[in-house]
């Protein structure tokens, strides 16, 4: 992972000028240059790479949709599972944390609170898991066809986004049924999802490269993600839990990217949630602060992840 392979090859090709070429007159690299031939494997510049990726947008979308369609194609209920899966997920968590562990005193609508957290976290979790496998699990595709490799982690995230869109529909019904009301804040939901999607794309690009070269990542990832789940305030309210702790500790937990996106969504969807926080006087990050954090994480993840992934573009597929 230290040096781009093409750079090494470059210097070597330069060294062997006048080497054992079939013509015997000029080196093959010089011959190639004279006829304007380019190296078959060369990493395109970042702007060119972005354009190539944009040119493949139809492939990315079709690939994502196709994966979603094929996912449930051998079950009797078929595409209905796209709705049933989030519903059942919500049901299991409600049974576990709502019924068995008992309702929370400090949260009016714990069911909606919990399910919002589960869906929002699940989106990031599945994007990351998919991203980590997107290169290592598609080696035959990478070795057969030419396309910017970032198309794969991107397609996996878009696939999860399509799933999430359905989950959000389920969520809205649950939220309204459990006594929340429709507010103007709901208009901001697409923007929160957009920021989270950008964050997920960046993170899955990062893990796609890691997963491509570090095979053990796919074994380790479930544990990392489960730890992340428990620290992200999916089952509990961070402001309520951290009310007696120092300010910086609460900030650290609240600044954690999944916590940001989860809390953002809760502020937008559940009008009981900000009221609960205010009623108990829990110190917490305000909605504008949460937008700021979300924007920060989206920008950092996308730029960092994309750059990191692109740096190894020509090496994907080697093993």
């Amino acid at each position: 992972m230290s040096q781009p392979e093409s750079a090494v090859a470059d210097s070597r090709a330069g060294d062997r000028a006048g080497g054992s070429s079939p013509s015997g007159k000029e080196s093959l690299s010089a011959l190639a240059e004279r006829h304007g031939l380019r190296r078959a494997i060369a990493r395109p510049s970042l702007p060119v790479y972005v354009r190539q990726l944009w040119d493949r947008r139809h492939f990315v979308l079709t690939y994502a949709t196709s994966r979603n369609v094929s996912k449930y194609s051998d079950s009797a209920l078929g595409q209905l599972w796209q709705v049933l899966t989030p519903l059942l997920n919500a049901g299991v968590y409600y049974l576990m944390f709502g019924v068995i562990m008992g309702q929370r005193k400090d949260l009016t609508n714990y069911t909606a609170f919990l399910i919002t957290g589960v869906f929002v976290y699940g989106y990031t979790q599945r994007s990351v898991t998919g991203g980590a496998k997107s290169i290592s699990g598609n080696l035959s595709l990478i070795r057969a066809l030419h396309f910017p490799r970032a198309a794969l982690p991107l397609a996996y995230t878009i696939q999860e986004f399509q799933q999430l869109a359905i989950s959000m529909g389920v969520l809205f019904v649950i939220v309204l049924v459990t006594g929340e009301s429709l507010t103007w804040l709901w208009l901001l939901i697409p923007f929160a999802l957009l920021l989270q999607t950008i964050f997920n794309v960046g993170l899955s690009l990062l893990l796609a490269r890691v997963g491509a070269f570090v095979r053990d990542m796919n074994q380790l990832l479930p544990f990392i993600l489960r730890t992340w789940l428990y620290t992200s305030g999916v089952f509990y309210s961070i402001p309520a839990r951290m009310k007696d702790q120092p300010e910086w500790a609460r900030f650290l937990l609240e600044f954690n990217p999944p916590s940001v996106f989860i809390d953002l969504m809760r502020h937008l969807v559940l009008n009981s949630y900000p009221k609960d926080l205010a009623a108990h006087q829990f110190p917490h990050s305000t909605l504008p602060q949460l937008w700021l954090y979300a924007g920060f994480w989206a920008a950092v993840a996308l730029i960092g992840g994309f750059w990191y992934f692109w740096r190894a573009e020509e090496r994907y597929g080697r093993g």
Partner: peptide, 22 residues
């Protein structure tokens, strides 16, 4: 589609493998 370990391949345009199965 496979990065060279050493040496290089120079091409005119993008050679394509006839195969889409994957």
């Amino acid at each position: 589609l496979l990065p060279p370990h050493k040496g290089s391949v120079y091409t005119n345009g993008q050679p394509s493998l006839l195969g889409v199965n994957a």
